[in-house]
Design a protein around this nucleic acid. Structure first.
Lengths: 340, 340
DNA sequence: CTGTTAGCGCTTTCAA
DNA sequence: TTGAAAGCGCTAACAG
């Protein structure tokens, strides 16, 4: 008769336990100042009815947090971001909070929508890997004071907490290692302009060249490949260069995997020898990177820790001083060199 | 003065627009029966105030759905599950719903907690990759009628919608291919008993052997490795067998990657030739699988589609007949053979 | 220690 | 076409 989807309420639990709703509420809140005997009755009623406190109703009362953290990342299917999300989830779960997850697919408009939606659901805070350079939708005023932490990428002109990698130094480190090994024609695969990390990593790449007195060849710097397939294509084009690169710097795992895939194909299908193919330097480790047909050196870091730190910055903000100066964390990267 | 964290409400928007809260509500609900001029004023006030309708408050009214889907998976960092989550998210986002994501880490207790928490947040439905064999926390009664879809794994005795892979046939197909190629000593790496897919895939492995009249050697069937490192160790032990396997069947991508990692290590560090090392058959594709030092055949499928289908089953349930018979979808797998 | 009252932000119902 | 009243489930504040 009655809708099976109707969920029991405090009142029903109270009625069944023969107490008032407040006693139920208090019991569920920890049971301070409730006679143990009543607590037992309440708990029994809760169990019998399969009652779950309505957190949404609860959170509309002033001062009651929703226990929700909004996380907007560009692509969950990218192992880098999924591991990042794991770190966030772990840290949030540790405080009883849950994460509301959304994918932006590198679409700034979708990101803005997502943020708006998250705000509507009264998230306590936001963790965003921002897409595009506009920060309008993340301004303090627009957020109504909800704290936001930027992860992996910062946004110019937006003074909020952030956790990023030491992209520039890492890229310079990796590039220097290639230059030190005698390479003078190093290709660059990655997103250069559009994306924060791309720009920074590219700057590191450039700086290392400058410091080594090696000129850049624009022909070795294709732009904008984002997906594995695009990167593979770009790699193929590079190999067709009359004076091909002897090493390739990949600014992220998508580009590295694309590059390596193409190199593997050249070996398998075109009968080329690994010896005539470029070394690979990858910003981001990836699974099986040490089993590749050409040596893959890695500028390594810990995306899970990145997620944890982002979450911790946010949680600190939630529990502490909302107005304190923004914190900017830069996590270190380490170079893992592989040679022939 | 006033707490910057205080978010504007309908009342404030109404006051600013010089209308009643109801006019604001109606405007935000689509604006039926609201004079365009008033709508404009309302929308202007919304923009000026940075108002976001409180979805939590909204959802406590009877009949108002929360727009939330609870997703409990075992490990977001596993590319298989993160891609699955992407599929779910896409499909959910298409209907304006968001996903509440939780990691169970293969811990049944954590899963039960998570489900309870999700219910408290009034999710409209649940998508669960169940851990363990207990289904008590997912019984209809315990869920208060909230629909659940099981993904990847089913639970004995729990008659709810499910999407799984055709594990048994897939495993048999892959195993048969190895047997057809002349292998008679095939090792098995995976979780056999504890997990639904493990059991099914193992059954397929066994059936193929039976059909080919080849006996199983228990010594080639270590048990229970879940992580890459454990799988690598198990692979190493197998290679130490006086009569080592000539092929290894890996029941999931974690085990395949572990196995391949160890094989690569044997080649690089122990100077062994790929020719004396076993072929690999992997249930689950993984990135770069075609670049491995030994041929890796793949029993392939689409985790993103699995996620989409799970979400669609759930959405159908939400929009349609809650009480209809459970649907059981089995997605096909395909064999991609690689030989020397 | 327990209960009553009131109100959080929103929208359904009813009246104007 | 608009608004006032009432109530969703919950809990702080105040009695008792």
């Amino acid at each position: 008769m009655n809708d099976p989807r109707r969920r029991p309420t405090v009142k029903e639990v109270a009625a069944r336990a023969g107490v008032s709703p407040m006693t139920v509420s208090r019991t569920l809140a920890g049971g301070v100042n409730v006679k143990p005997e009543l607590q037992e009755r309440v708990l029994a009623a809760v169990a019998e009815l399969g009652y779950h406190r309505n957190e949404n109703a609860r959170s509309i009362r002033p001062g009651q947090p929703s226990g929700l953290i909004g996380v907007a990342i560009t692509n969950i299917a990218n192992p880098y971001y999924s591991t990042f999300a794991l770190g966030v989830e772990e840290e949030a779960a540790g405080t009883g909070r849950r994460i509301l997850l959304g994918n932006t697919s590198e679409d700034p408009q979708r990101e803005a929508q997502l943020v708006g939606d998250f705000l509507g659901r009264r998230v306590e805070g936001l963790i965003v890997v921002p897409t595009g350079q506009s920060s309008a939708h993340l301004e303090h005023a627009r957020l109504g004071g909800v704290p936001v932490v930027l992860a992996s990428r910062r946004l110019k002109g937006l003074a909020v907490d952030s956790v990023v990698l030491d992209d520039e130094s890492g890229a310079a480190l990796g590039t220097s290692a290639l230059l030190d090994a005698g390479h003078t024609r190093i290709a660059y695969l990655g997103n250069i302009r559009r994306i924060f990390t791309g720009e920074r990593r590219y700057q590191g790449f450039v700086r290392a060249h400058r410091e080594h007195g090696v000129d850049l060849d624009p022909a070795l710097i294709p732009e904008g490949q984002q997906e594995v397939g695009e990167a593979a294509e770009a790699m193929r084009a590079l190999l067709g260069n009359p004076d091909p690169p002897t090493a390739v710097f990949c600014a992220n795992n998508r580009n590295a995997i694309g590059a390596v895939t193409e190199l593997g194909r050249q070996i398998a299908e075109e009968g080329r020898s690994p010896d005539e193919l470029p070394d690979v330097m990858s910003f981001d480790d990836f699974e099986l990177s040490d089993l590749m047909p050409v040596p893959v050196s890695v500028i390594d870091h810990d995306p899970r820790e990145l997620g944890r730190r982002a979450a911790r910055l946010l949680l600190d903000r939630l529990e502490g001083d909302v107005a304190a100066n923004p914190q900017h964390v830069e996590l270190p990267v380490t170079l893992r060199l592989r040679t022939r």
